[in-house]
Design a protein around this nucleic acid. Structure first.
Lengths: 391, 391
DNA sequence: CGCGTTTAGTCTTGTCGTGAAACTTATATC
DNA sequence: GATATAAGTTTCACGACAAGACTAAACGCG
């Protein structure tokens, strides 16, 4: 249903007449559809506050209160949980710091599910849970609901959906996705269904390793298993150091967090960041940063050339070092990206929100609503007792 | 219209009832739509030749005769032109060998258009021209109809559509596309709309440089300007030789045709290919081939890791050397592609058809038909005099 | 040979979604 | 207060589709 997407894309700005103009449908059709969506609790009417000649239109917004989505994330250093409403407002959240590398997958996922249940309990009651979605740092089989492998967690072949079973129903969908793809979604969309400034870009996330995710035309290019975007294992030097993956010269082995610590002779990350920001870093650090910047530029050039992109967003630990890295990165990009003369490559920095993966996972639930609001409305109608019980 | 796509995907196999089963529509709806398509000359009924119980169904196929598409290609070494019908059968073709590097763009495109006109004259008369599409080796602005830059031809900022103006009309669409993307389309689809064995893969085309094109789920990933797939300028060695693009260590500078000739001390390509196939090549050649194979493997690993793919198709000059290159390519892929343990990387070789770009350009016209057959049917109805004149 | 079974395709009917156009409502301007 | 303008609603007619009955064409068994 195009109507809901149009409203979510410009919350509070579009009236029925605007939607009609944007979608090409007639005002009468839009009016009927909007009335359904309002009745179903998906859209809400703002106060008519418009100025100008003629009858003022009624601005439409995503409706608060009726629907929420739960987003969960298990990552190397934390568990996170978000409950958001249709407008993308965070109604409740939890964040637990813990070293989960090598942890027992089922035990950790059970903890995560409990965390999600607590978060839901914190949220205002009476709303219908659209979806419960998990973001995980690894390869995923969407259809089977299995995490195939998460190297940094040390997990493999984990059936994830059973842990979400408490929420799974005809009316609540559950699923799992790659964490970097979820995070990229939050950059492409400041609010669910609301396209941001950037339409197509590569997002580089430095966490422990270096992952990336590509957004093309507002769509996350997740690949068939959510395994796309392994920028960290693009080769930047065939004679370079051996990487944890067994190959030689991966980006991660040069610009990864551990590689930078080792090359600069430091053992505390915050110290390294502070020193890198200082006016005159010592030669070992400067060399390590230059080398990492060049490597990042080389790997990014490959991605941009292969995908016809011209925008890079740095996140994670690479964002913290952005000032120090950017000159070398730019130099490589300017030399290597073929479309550069026509469309200059832009590099921007995104200081990572806390657990963007969990937030993006919650976005997924709303995305399924937007893809087919009629289905949710039908479900709504088929179980009116639930709504009645709340009233 | 899903119906036409289903039939084109299995020409001669699907009956109305099969289509109904495949699309989920009822038999009555399918029957009505198929009747329209048959009346419109898009589908044709085969002889009912089915065995088994019950009334035999009528197999459906793309209709020959009523519609044709013209595909043109201007490339460094040739001009080519194809006229195909809906089933993908070549009704007429032309191929002119010529060195067009540095030629005058408008003069060459005028020649190409004339070649297309000749080809159309060769084809059986009475068919309606669906589209005229040009494949060019460079960056393209689809909307403006402009070739932004084709380095190997030495062209830039060329308005292409005016050369196709003789065919442009309400009923005949014209357009232009990147040549590698068109060629990849012919690999993904043995006939228009007919999906082949491979669903997602990277096609590497070695012509003068090294280009590539990615097919994801049957769709060509062309990027915003048809500029995606610049595998030739992925860096495989930051200390490598300087490439024509100005950067250092591009794949093309190691595994390009000229690079291989230079490194092996030869000046004739056919000799090089023959020597490479011989049981015991000389050390210089063997070293050049190994180096090129490793470089290709490194660049491909980057593409596969970034896009979550596990199939490579070699074409062009790299296909000719496939036997000699494959061991080194495989070695790198096996080490570097992260999804390898789960889904082994497959490398296949596609000996390039003559001018696959032109053929793929013709496919585009049929793709537009399949995307919205109703539009073409409507046009048909609005100009019945043309059809009447043929009868 | 004839009749029932099975499957393909068509025909009829009712429902639903949509657009066209008239109508109502709410504001600004004169 | 009259008029213009724009938003939103109502009415009506049309068309696409599904459900289900019906016809057509093959096979197989008695």
């Amino acid at each position: 249903m195009l109507v809901a997407q149009a409203v979510f894309a410009r919350p509070g700005e579009f009236t029925r007449a605007d939607v009609a103009g944007a979608t090409g449908m007639t005002r009468s059709t839009v009016s009927r559809l909007v009335d359904q969506l309002v009745a179903g609790g998906i859209l809400a009417e703002d106060d008519p506050a418009q100025r100008g000649r003629g009858r003022p239109g009624v601005p439409l917004r995503p409706a608060p209160g009726t629907f929420v989505a739960l987003g969960l994330e298990a990552n190397v250093g934390h568990l996170a949980s978000y409950v958001i409403d249709l407008a993308g407002r965070v109604l409740a959240r939890r964040f637990v710091t813990d070293d989960l590398a090598g942890s027992d997958a089922d035990a950790t996922l059970a903890r995560l599910a409990d965390l999600g249940a607590e978060t839901l309990a914190d949220a205002p009651a009476g709303a219908h849970l659209l979806s419960a979605h998990v973001a995980l740092p690894g390869i995923v089989d969407h259809d089977a609901g299995v995490l195939l492998r998460a190297p940094n967690l040390g997990w493999s072949q984990v059936a994830v959906l059973p842990h979400l079973a408490r929420w799974a129903s005809e009316r609540t969908l559950t699923g799992l996705d790659n964490e970097a793809d979820c995070a990229a979604l939050t950059i492409a969309q400041p609010a669910p269904g609301y396209p941001g400034d950037l339409d197509s870009f590569v997002y580089v996330s430095g966490n422990v390793g270096i992952g990336s995710s590509t957004v093309l035309g507002g769509q996350v290019l997740a690949g068939r298993h959510g395994w796309a975007g392994e920028l960290g294992h693009v080769c930047v030097d065939p004679d370079g150091p051996v990487c944890g993956c067994g190959a030689r010269g991966c980006l991660e082995a040069v610009a990864g967090r551990r590689a930078l610590l080792a090359a600069s002779g430091r053992d505390d990350w915050d110290v390294l960041v502070a020193d890198a920001a200082a006016p005159d870093p010592d030669p070992a650090l400067a060399a390590a940063l230059t080398r990492a910047g060049r490597a990042l530029g080389i790997a990014l050039s490959a991605a941009l050339n292969l995908l016809d992109l011209s925008h890079v967003v740095l996140g994670g630990h690479l964002a913290e070092l952005a000032d120090a890295l950017t000159p070398a990165v730019r130099a490589e990009l300017d030399t290597r990206v073929l479309s550069g003369p026509f469309e200059p490559v832009q590099v921007s920095v995104r200081t990572a929100a806390e657990a963007p993966g969990a937030l993006g996972a919650a976005y997924h639930g709303i995305a399924t609503l937007l893809a087919d609001p009629a289905r949710v409305l039908a479900d709504e109608a088929s179980e009116p007792d639930a709504a009645a019980a709340q009233a």
